[in-house]
Simulated assay, not measured.
Amino acid sequence: MAVVNRTPDSFYDRGATFALDRAVGSALRAADLGADWVDIGGVPFGRGPAVSTAEEIDRVVPLIEAITAARPELVVSVDTNRADVAERAVAAGAAVVNDTSGLGDERMAEVVAESGAHIVITHSVGPPRVEKPPARYGDVVAEVRAFLAERMARALAAGIPAERLIVDPGHDLDKNTLHSLELTRRLDEIADLGAPLLVAVSNKDFIGETLDRPQSERLPGSLAAMTACVLAGARIVRMHDVAETVDAVRMIEGILGWRPPARLEHNTHPTRNV
C-alpha cells in the first residue's frame, strides 16, 4: 500500500506531491514499482492548521478520479476521518476508506455500508490535527484490541459485512515509542481479531527514536519493523518507499513459501555447482 499525500504539510515529502499532476505521477510510479494499492490523503493526522471538508474533498477527489481512470486495476483508498469526504471519494472511485479515527464520525459506518467500500478501522484517541496530552495506557495492546473489537462490532451492526473490515493498530497515533514497540512485539494479539491486519510503520517517530535517526534515514528501520509485523500477522503494509518494500515483502513471501523464486539457477545445473 503506497502513500500519496496531497497536502502541503506532509511529514514525509513536505508537500512535494501537493500539486495534482505530481500526485498523479507519484501514484502511477508507485504502481509501476509494484504497489497493489495507493492510499490518498488530503489532511495529515498530526497537529496543524484546520482543513475544511470542502478543501479536503477538492484535494482528494480529482486525484482519485485521475488515478482510477489511468489504472483501473489499482486499489485506491482515501485516508479520511470524515464521512462526507469518504462518500465523495468512493463515488470518485475509491474502493477503501482508511479511517484513522476508527469510525469517529457517527455517519462513517452508515456511509461505508451503503457504498460497498471496504473500511480500515484504525485505533487512535480523540480527533486528529489537535494537540493532545501525553499518551497513557495501562496495557496498550489490550486497550487497542478492545477498541478495535468494539468498532468492528459497530461496523457490523451498521451493515458492513465482515469481509469488508480491515484493522490497523495505529502505530504512533496517540502513542509514544514504547507503546508502538509493544504493539509491534505483541501484534499477534491484534491479528487474532480475525480481520485482515494493516500496519503503517513507515518512517514513523518510534523508528526514529529507537534508532536515533532523522526522518530521511529511517528506511532500514522501517523495513525491519514491517518485516516483524508481517511475521506476526500483518497482511497489508502501508509504506512510502515502494521499490524497497516490494523486494522485502517478496523475500518474506519466498522464505515463508508463499511465492516461488523469480528464477532458479544456483546449484541446479551440473556444470554450475558453485
Rank of each mutant, 00 (worst) to 15 (best):
M1F: 13
A2L: 15
V3A: 13
R6D: 08
R6P: 09
D9T: 12
F11E: 14
Y12V: 10
D21K: 03
D21W: 00
A23H: 01
R29H: 10
A30V: 08
A30M: 09
D32S: 07
D39I: 04
I40Q: 05
G41M: 09
P44C: 06
A50G: 15
A54V: 13
A54Q: 14
D58W: 13
R59V: 12
V60H: 02
V61E: 04
L63Y: 09
V78M: 12
N81E: 15
R82G: 06
A83W: 00
A83H: 00
V85Q: 03
A89R: 00
A91D: 03
A91W: 06
A92I: 02
A95T: 03
V97C: 06
D99I: 01
S101L: 04
D105F: 09
D105H: 04
M108F: 04
E110D: 02
V111I: 02
V111P: 06
A113D: 04
G116H: 11
G116Q: 03
A117P: 03
H118R: 11
T122C: 05
T122E: 08
P133I: 05
D139E: 05
D139Q: 01
V140D: 03
E143Q: 06
V144T: 04
R145F: 04
A149K: 05
R151D: 04
M152N: 09
A153L: 10
L156A: 05
G159W: 05
I160F: 07
P161G: 06
I166W: 07
H171N: 00
D172I: 01
L173P: 03
L173M: 11
L173W: 10
D174W: 09
L181I: 10
L181P: 08
L183A: 08
T184L: 12
R185P: 00
R185W: 06
R185Q: 05
L187W: 04
D188L: 13
I190T: 02
I190A: 00
I190D: 03
G194Y: 01
V201K: 06
V201W: 03
S202C: 08
K204W: 06
K204P: 12
K204Q: 12
I207G: 08
G208F: 00
E209G: 07
L211H: 00
S216D: 12
R218Y: 10
R218I: 10
L219T: 11
G221N: 12
L223S: 08
A225K: 09
A225N: 13
M226E: 08
A228L: 15
V237Q: 05
R238D: 01
H240P: 07
T245W: 02
V249H: 03
R250K: 15
I252H: 02
G254K: 10
L256W: 14
G257Y: 11
P260H: 13
L264R: 14
E265V: 12
E265F: 15
T268W: 14
P270V: 15
V274I: 14
